[in-house]
């Protein structure tokens, strides 16, 4: 029985991974928005990492994060991989801490926003390292943060909506 649960868990990991990559890919089709650094996307695939962080193990959540980064690297080059990795690792770490702790009194929207902000901060750091100047923080920072509030709102809400359904699937396993 445990074997079955294990293999179904692995299968679900695979599905989540594929979902994360698909969302990532769809997002990459969105043209660069003016005022935001090239490559800034709503971060919908973060819904998957947040879900992983809340319902799977920490290692599993990071696995998806790394998977996304490698995918970005293979399809869009080293810069994309770096941006995805830095944003993803910071965001997933935040998600793991916030979603798995019962003591933190934040709603899903608040958590979604914090994860989105961490994601953008990670990406901004990478961009600064790549271009060799810290001035990007002041150039893109303000708009990115506001953007993160909006994005986090959406991902947090969607997570809350999706969790009950996914929870049912998990329990059936």
């Amino acid at each position: 029985m445990r074997d079955k649960k294990n293999s179904q868990r692995v299968a679900l990991l695979g599905i989540m991974g594929a979902l994360a990559l698909a969302l990532s890919f769809l997002e990459s089709l969105i043209p660069a928005l003016p005022g935001l650094p090239p490559g800034a996307k709503p971060g919908l695939s973060n819904i998957v990492t947040m879900f992983m962080a809340s319902s799977f193990s920490v290692a599993d959540a990071f696995f998806i994060t790394v998977l996304k980064a490698v995918f970005a690297g293979v399809t869009r080059g080293t810069t994309a991989m770096l941006m995805s990795a830095s944003g993803g690792i910071l965001s997933t770490a935040a998600a793991c801490v916030l979603l798995r702790s019962k003591k933190i009194n934040l709603g899903y929207i608040g958590i979604g926003i914090i994860c989105a902000v961490c994601h953008n901060i990670g990406q901004l750091m990478s961009a600064c390292l790549i271009s060799g100047t810290w001035s990007l923080i002041f150039g893109y920072g303000p708009l990115l943060l506001i953007f993160a509030v909006a994005t986090g709102f959406v991902t947090g809400t969607m997570l809350k909506l999706v969790l009950p359904a996914l929870g049912k699937i998990m329990n059936r396993l």
């Binding site: 009194n105 934040l106 709603g107 899903y108 929207i109 608040g110 958590i111 926003i113 914090i114 902000v117 923080i137 002041f138 150039g139 920072g141 303000p142 708009l143 943060l145 506001i146 993160a148 509030v149 947090g156 809400t157 809350k160 969790l163 009950p164 929870g167």
Partner: peptide, 27 residues
């Protein structure tokens, strides 16, 4: 499961907005 929105979330939003304004000033 947690709630969708809590009072603390307001503080999060406010903090991010203030941070965004602070980063804008040097510009």
């Amino acid at each position: 499961m947690k709630k969708l929105f809590m009072r603390a979330d307001f503080i999060v939003i406010l903090t991010v907005i203030i941070l965004s304004i602070l980063l804008f000033i040097p510009n």
